[in-house]
Design a protein around this nucleic acid. Structure first.
Length: 434
RNA sequence: GCCCCCAUCGUCUACCGGUUAGGACAUCAGGUUCUCAUCCUGGAAAUCGGGGUUCGAUUCCCCGUGGGGGUGCCA
């Protein structure tokens, strides 16, 4: 039987990180097996399933490059089919009507009462449950709309899904779903239930724990490949010591047998580290594009005060952890209107004598026959001997010129800013220093 | 309450009966460097508890404890 899997989210306007992880695993599984990965939009909730919400979902898929092999299926278009199956089930006595809860008659599917129900979960292993511990369940509401269980199974049958890979929270549902498959005379798919992604408290990861939706990671400046790679490592490991991998390597190595069945905590620190690794290795063109977008969004000019853009990007790219910290980290290279970091000012500019020192430096820079990496370094070295250490010279200059206590190498920075501006900034900082 | 599942450093994980229990993030201490980032070296850091099975258990089984999930005319 050929491998056909699906990602079946309901479009709510946001795609939860745990949900997209399921999509990632489905995608990897399909690609590894050379099968099909399909998208089914479970848009039966008319309230929340707006065109906007669907667009957001599709954008997330695209952003993470989770390409699907057939046109997306919209569940809302299958309602007639769901109800037809329900009617058939009722006609065959497999479901019955009852006014449960007094809101009108609904259709209830009959679960077996004797024996044991079981299935082999590809991640969790042999799963079993006594039939008496299960309950009949509603498949069509009193307002004649199909319930999730029915719609989900009917669609899986129609789409000839071979493997259902989904979150842990569906384990119990599986016993119901399998009975539904059997009632429809269909072979149940293979199941694989993925562990949940939890927060520091071990609770399901939610908005309260930080970025919880794919869109938020995008906004915060994470690269899709980095997020993808990080997500893959939550509940799965390729074996050996590999962590940062290309998609092809992941596809090659991915198997459900290597999936864990215990919950995984979402560690933002590691994601951030990984993102930095991906950004550093990113082609310059892609980085430049993202850089420009972030600067524009922050309202910062995108033409360097001097030199060409790539000369500025050289020292910036390897230092960038997330795209959204770009503007603050290099604004001083693009405008004179840059802020001074308070802590840096009090530590490096406030000490007595700094004002005088900066004015001297300004004069000294002015007097240099040429303003280069070598000449500035030579000058600073000379000064440092008189002042007891490079640090005493380098730090105040750095803060004066960039407003920050960290960044590219000082001489690189000086040349990037240019002599004229360096001198002006030193004098201006001298005033701040008092 | 009842049902189901899970359990290795702080975190993500490797190990599929015999290892000084490995790696990564984070962290700490050095080194390189003008800062930061990078890079290099080193440190601290784990098998939830109790029973079995076995010559030998992190690994297999049982119980306990802890955590999670389910128990909707939500999905």
């Amino acid at each position: 039987m050929s491998v056909r899997v699906r990602f079946a989210p309901s479009p709510t306007g946001n795609v939860h990180i745990g949900n997209i992880r399921a999509a990632v695993f489905n995608w990897l599984f399909a690609r590894h097996a050379g099968g099909q990965f399909l998208l089914r939009v479970e848009d039966t909730d008319r309230e929340r399933s707006t065109p906007e919400a669907i667009r957001t979902l599709l954008e997330c898929m695209k952003w993470l490059d989770l390409n699907y092999d057939e046109p997306a299926v919209y569940q809302s278009a299958q309602t007639e089919r769901h109800l037809a199956v329900a009617a058939d089930l009722e006609a065959r006595g497999l479901a019955y009507r009852e006014n449960k809860g007094g809101t009108g008659e609904c259709l209830i599917f009959r679960m077996p009462q004797d024996g044991e129900l079981r299935f082999n979960d590809l991640v969790k292993g042999d799963m079993k449950k006594k039939a008496k511990d299960t309950q009949d369940f509603v498949i069509v509401r009193s307002d004649n709309t199909p319930v999730f269980h029915l719609a989900n199974v009917v669609d899986d049958v129609d789409m000839t899904i071979s493997h259902v890979i989904r979150g842990d929270d569906h384990v119990e549902n599986t016993f119901k779903h399998i009975e539904l498959f059997k009632a429809m005379g269909a072979e149940p798919p293979q199941y694989a239930h993925l562990p949940m992604i939890v927060n520091n408290m071990g609770k399901p990861y939610s908005k309260r724990d930080g970025a919880a939706f794919v869109g938020e990671f995008k906004e915060q400046g994470y690269m899709p490949d980095a997020l993808f790679n990080f997500l893959v490592l939550l509940g799965w490991a390729p074996g050996g010591d590999r962590e940062i991998m290309t998609r092809d390597e992941m596809i090659e190595a991915f198997t459900l047998e290597r999936c864990k069945s215990s919950a995984a905590r979402f560690d933002t620190k590691k994601l951030k580290w990984m993102n930095g690794e991906y950004i550093a290795k990113q082609p310059r063109d892609a980085f430049r594009e993202e850089f420009l977008a972030r600067m524009k969004a922050a309202g910062v000019p995108t033409t360097p005060l001097s030199g060409d853009l790539d000369a500025v990007l050289d020292p910036i790219q390897p230092r960038t952890k997330t795209f959204n910290d770009i503007p603050a980290n290099c604004i001083y290279l693009f405008t004179e209107e840059f802020p001074f970091d308070e802590a840096a000012v009090s530590k490096r500019l406030k000490p007595a004598g700094t004002a005088t020192f900066l004015r001297e430096m300004s004069d000294a820079f002015e007097a240099l026959p040429e303003f280069t990496l070598e000449s500035t370094e030579q000058l600073v070295h000379a000064k440092s001997e008189a002042l007891g250490g490079m640090g005493a010279v380098v730090h105040p200059i750095r803060v004066a010129v960039s407003g920050l206590s960290e960044g590219p190498g000082l001489f690189e920075l000086l040349v990037l800013v240019g002599r004229e501006r360096v001198c002006a900034r030193c004098r201006k900082a001298a005033e701040i220093a008092g």
